[in-house]
Amino acid sequence: MLHRAIEMAEDLKIVKSDHRELNRSQFSEEMVASIKRTAWGLFQIDTIVHTNFLKPSRVHEVSVERLSRDEDNPIGTWMPYPISDRTQPSYMGQYFDESCNLSYIARDISRSGQVAKQKDIDPNKVKQDVYNRLRQWETNLPEIFIPKKRPAPHILLLRFV
């Protein structure tokens, strides 16, 4: 099903093609946002699945720009119903944006094995480069993402399941 979804996204030219500008005269604001979320969500799923199967990801580029952190989901609230009635900020746009950044690293991990073999590159150097990128990504996370102090809402939910 993932391969079929990628093929459909390719046909729509939202992945693996030249940059596509979504014409707002042809699409409503909601449709533009939906197309962008779909393309970037597919990129994330593809990188996660292929990296887990130790295969190169199929989607190496997304052809539409990402929604900005605040445009994607203005800081709304989230309530861990039925556990509590106390709300907290959701930051879902920010979480999605950071997971897209992490997906670039996962994409490169999924492809690094092939590249290292083809170009006779030291695998330890590749691993160190990936490790450095992961550490840099973690270092650059906004303060709102400190798991011990402010866990993400979906992490809170998992604690109660």
Rank of each mutant, 00 (worst) to 15 (best):
Y104T: 07
D129W: 09
D97S: 09
E71R: 04
E29C: 01
A5K: 04
T87W: 07
Q94R: 08
C100I: 15
K127G: 13
H154Q: 10
T87H: 11
F96C: 08
E61C: 06
K119Q: 15
L22G: 01
F43T: 00
S68K: 05
E143W: 03
L158S: 11
N140G: 08
E10C: 03
M8R: 07
S63N: 03
A116C: 14
P74A: 11
L22Q: 03
V130G: 04
Y81Q: 13
K119R: 15
K16H: 06
C100S: 10
K36H: 03
N132W: 09
H154S: 13
R107Q: 15
D70G: 01
D108P: 01
L2C: 04
T87K: 10
Q88C: 07
F43L: 04
V115R: 14
V130K: 03
Q26E: 05
Y131I: 13
Y95M: 11
S28E: 04
M31G: 02
Q88H: 08
S25K: 01
P82R: 08
R58N: 14
V49D: 10
E61P: 00
P123Q: 13
L141T: 03
K148D: 15
D11M: 04
Y81K: 09
N73K: 07
V130I: 15
G93L: 08
M92Q: 12
K149E: 15
K127I: 13
K149C: 07
D46K: 03
V49W: 05
R159S: 14
S103Y: 01
H19E: 11
H154K: 08
S84M: 10
V130A: 12
R24K: 03
T38M: 07
K148N: 14
D72I: 00
A33I: 02
R133W: 11
L156R: 07
I45V: 13
S17Y: 03
N23T: 02
H19W: 02
N23H: 01
Q136T: 12
I35L: 05
S57M: 05
R58H: 13
D108I: 04
L158F: 05
D122I: 09
Q114H: 11
S57I: 06
S112R: 08
E143S: 07
I75M: 10
F160P: 00
G113I: 08
